[in-house]
Design a protein around this nucleic acid. Sequence first.
DNA 1: GATATACTATGTCAATCGATAGATATTATC
DNA 2: GATAATATCTATCGATTGACATAGTATATC
Lengths: 232, 232
Amino acid sequence: MTDIPPTSRRRPTVQARGEDTRRRILETALDLFAAQGYEGASTRQIAEGAGVNLPAIQYYFGNKEGLYRAVIEDIAADTDRHMASLAPRVQGALVAPETPRKELAALLCEMLETFVVLVTSGTQVESRRLIFARAEIEETPGLDILHENGMRQIFNPCLGLFARLHGKSVTDQEMTFRTLALIGQVVIFCNNNKRPVLAGAGLDAESVRLMKLVVREHTEAICRAALAASAP
Amino acid sequence: MTDIPPTSRRRPTVQARGEDTRRRILETALDLFAAQGYEGASTRQIAEGAGVNLPAIQYYFGNKEGLYRAVIEDIAADTDRHMASLAPRVQGALVAPETPRKELAALLCEMLETFVVLVTSGTQVESRRLIFARAEIEETPGLDILHENGMRQIFNPCLGLFARLHGKSVTDQEMTFRTLALIGQVVIFCNNNKRPVLAGAGLDAESVRLMKLVVREHTEAICRAALAASAP
DNA sequence: GATATACTATGTCAATCGATAGATATTATC
DNA sequence: GATAATATCTATCGATTGACATAGTATATC
């Protein structure tokens, strides 16, 4: 009944206008889903905010869930792009049998710093941060995509590096917890910055620099302790 | 028009029954608000879950918002109780002018371990963890209460200790970020454990022990680095 | 037995929600 | 200029929501 997106044939002008409308809806939806959650944001609000009318959402995305999934997939694609250069290096270090432990630690630090940048820069950062935070608590159809993506792009690589550094297995529950704690240092910066703690401390270049510094120094300290504990 | 809760006069048996019903509503509401958010959970659902009928909510809590606030205040009171023994010791160490830095570090570790316990034990842990996580992103009338409480009971004490350890001011933005990173290690354990990472890893005694161990070791490592960096 | 408390049963209300039907406007191709 | 695909409009449907009003019942105190 609802033949959804017209992405096949290229008709220069009309197509361009359609694509523009699609993006406008997508961006408005991101902001509103972030601010009010999946249930909280109404399609009417989104349509109004995007300057289109209600059935436009059905036309472009089928229904509310389709729109939500599109928003999430957009963010996931963004994450992939952001991690594209680092991921293969980590992969390489993990398949190599004799990667020096100092290098593992350095890669782990770089990984977490890159994560900080992902979480604090780009377009619509505020909204993306909130969506990340929501991914950890909400139970909506699309969010597992984001969660899987985070596992694949962030958690698993960090776990791999950190476990090798400790000389332990990635299946060890202790390593899961240690990795979560590491990542938690960054994830907390995803929280609502309208709240007192992060208020004022926006996302200006200086704040981001500080966040990266803090995460790097903490992670280095933790890695140093790990090296000392499991020294050969 | 709506004279809300009958908490004044004591009529032994009837009163007890009323209190019981009140608690039953409160517990059901906690679970449902945690699982589905403020907007997501309907009063009808809550009433059904508690085995009362709809007007009972109005009778005891005035309206939906009143019920929500009651849930939040309940949790806040729980936090106060949990932190009651540690708070004055931290306060004491902070007002004393010459507290040894090792003691500051030890208190900080203890503080975070206590936080882990708060977040992983007691009745309805799962739901309370989710409410904590929601407090960081949702914008509902009652949640600032919880947030303020967290600032007063957790964040500010940690900030005070950690800043003293670094020999820096509590108003320094770097110290805010460092403290957030520390706390983030614990907060991440508040996330939905139905998700792959924490799945299986329930909240059995062994898991909690491991979480505490990890947080302690990481924090010790970070404190050691801080001591070395700002050594006298 | 009068009275207060602690509910329950039922129904209604306006508001808001997602979804859809169906008409219309715009544009590209032939 | 006819035709068809694309884009957007108005209008409305049915369901659910929080809230409230009214009436009734069971129990316990005085």
